[in-house]
C-alpha cells in the first residue's frame, strides 16, 4: 500500500514526527507506551512493507529482551521482592516492569525513527531547512544519503577486488584482514572525494546564495492545513496532559498512578488518535478512492 501521509506537506510531516517522537520518549505511562508501540509498528509496516516484520523480529525483539533483562539485574529498587539474585540483592517486581516499560519505549522510538527515515526524505529536509540553515541541511541530506551509498559502493569495490583475488573471501586469515583494510581504505578515500565533489558542485550552482530560489513540488493546500490543525490540537492536549501529570506513572518504589478519570481518558484517546493519524489518513484516502471509482 502506498503511504498517503508521505505526500502531505513536509512541514506537516515534520510537526507530526516531532510530536510522535517527543511523546514516545517522555511519556512512560503503560497506556501511552502501548499506544505508541502499536501505532509506530503498524505505521512502519505500512511504510516498509514486508521488511518491517523482519526488522521487528531480527533486531527489535532481541533489543527488547536484553533491555528488559538488564534492568532487574542492576536495579534492585521496589517494594515487591520476588526472590534474591545470585549477587545477594533482591529481584523486585517493580524493576522487571520498569525494564519492560523502557524496552517498549525503545522499540516504539525505533519504529517511529524508521518511519521518519522513510517519510522525511532528503529533498524534504533540504526544502524545509535549505533557507534557514543551508550548510546544515545540505550536510544532513548528504549524511542521510551517505549510508546507503556507502553500502552500494562497498559491494561494488568488493566485487571488483574479488575479480583480482583480493576480496575478504580470498586467502588466509591475515590476507583477508589485509584485503578488508584495503577495501575500507578505498571506501574512505572515495567518500572523502565524493563529499568534496558534492560540495564543489553545489557551490558552483550557487546553493545557499542570497536571492536564489529552489524549485520544489510541495504546496501547502487545504488538506495540509486541516492535518496541521488536527496535529497541533492533539499536541496541545498531550502537552496539557503531560503538565497535569496524567501521562506520568510511578514505577519506584511502588507502582502508582493511572487513576481513571475523564481527563485521563480524554488524553489517552487523543494520544491514540495521534499515534494512528497516518493510518487514518491512509484509510480515508483509500475510501475516497473507492467512492470515486464507484461513481464513474
Amino acid at each position: 500500500m502506498k503511504d498517503v501521509f508521505s505526500s502531505y506537506h513536509p512541514f506537516v510531516n515534520l510537526c507530526y514526527f516531532v510530536l510522535a517522537l517527543g511523546c514516545g520518549m517522555f511519556f512512560m505511562h503503560p497506556v501511552c507506551l502501548a499506544l505508541s508501540l502499536v501505532g509506530g509498528f503498524s505505521y512502519m509496516a505500512v511504510c516498509k512493507g514486508r521488511k518491517a516484520l523482519g526488522f521487528g523480529l531480527k533486531f527489535m525483539l532481541p533489543v527488547l529482551l536484553i533491555t528488559a533483562i538488564m534492568n532487574p539485574a542492576f536495579n534492585h529498587r521496589g517494594v515487591t521482592i520476588l526472590t534474591y539474585l545470585w549477587s545477594g540483592n533482591p529481584l523486585t517486581l517493580e524493576s522487571i516492569l520498569f525494564g519492560l516499560a523502557t524496552a517498549c519505549m525503545l522499540a516504539a522510538v525505533l519504529c517511529w525513527c524508521a518511519c521518519l527515515s522513510e517519510v522525511m526524505t532528503a529533498d524534504k529536509l533540504v526544502y524545509l531547512f535549505g533557507r534557514i540553515v543551508p550548510a546544515l541541511s545540505l550536510m544532513l541530506s548528504m549524511v542521510l544519503r551517505f549510508v546507503p551509498r556507502f553500502g552500494v559502493q562497498l559491494r561494488e569495490v568488493s566485487a571488483a577486488q574479488r575479480c583480482i583475488g583480493r576480496d575478504v573471501s580470498n586467502g588466509s586469515v591475515f590476507q583477508r584482514m589485509r584485503h578488508g583494510i584495503r577495501i575500507l581504505s578505498i571506501l574512505v578515500t572515495w567518500s572523502l572525494e565524493n563529499a568534496i565533489d558534492t560540495a564543489d558542485s553545489m557551490k558552483s550552482r550557487g546553493y545557499g546564495l542570497k536571492g536564489r530560489t529552489a524549485f520544489a513540488l510541495f504546496r501547502f493546500d487545504r488538506r495540509d492545513g486541516a492535518a496541521l490543525a488536527v496535529i497541533l490540537l492533539l499536541g496541545a492536549v498531550m502537552l496539557a496532559g503531560g503538565v497535569c501529570g496524567v501521562t506520568t506513572y510511578q514505577y519506584f518504589p511502588s507502582l502508582a498512578g493511572g487513576e481513571p478519570s475523564v481527563w485521563a481518558a480524554l488524553v489517552f484517546v487523543a494520544y491514540g488518535v495521534l499515534c494512528g493519524l497516518p493510518l487514518m489518513f491512509n484509510g480515508w484516502e483509500a475510501q475516497k478512492w473507492k467512492r470515486l471509482q464507484s461513481n464513474i
Partner: peptide, 13 residues
Amino acid sequence: RRETKQNKIHLEF
C-alpha cells in the same frame, strides 16, 4: 543481610 531477608525488608548493597 540475614535479618532484612528474614523480616522481608528490602536491602540493596
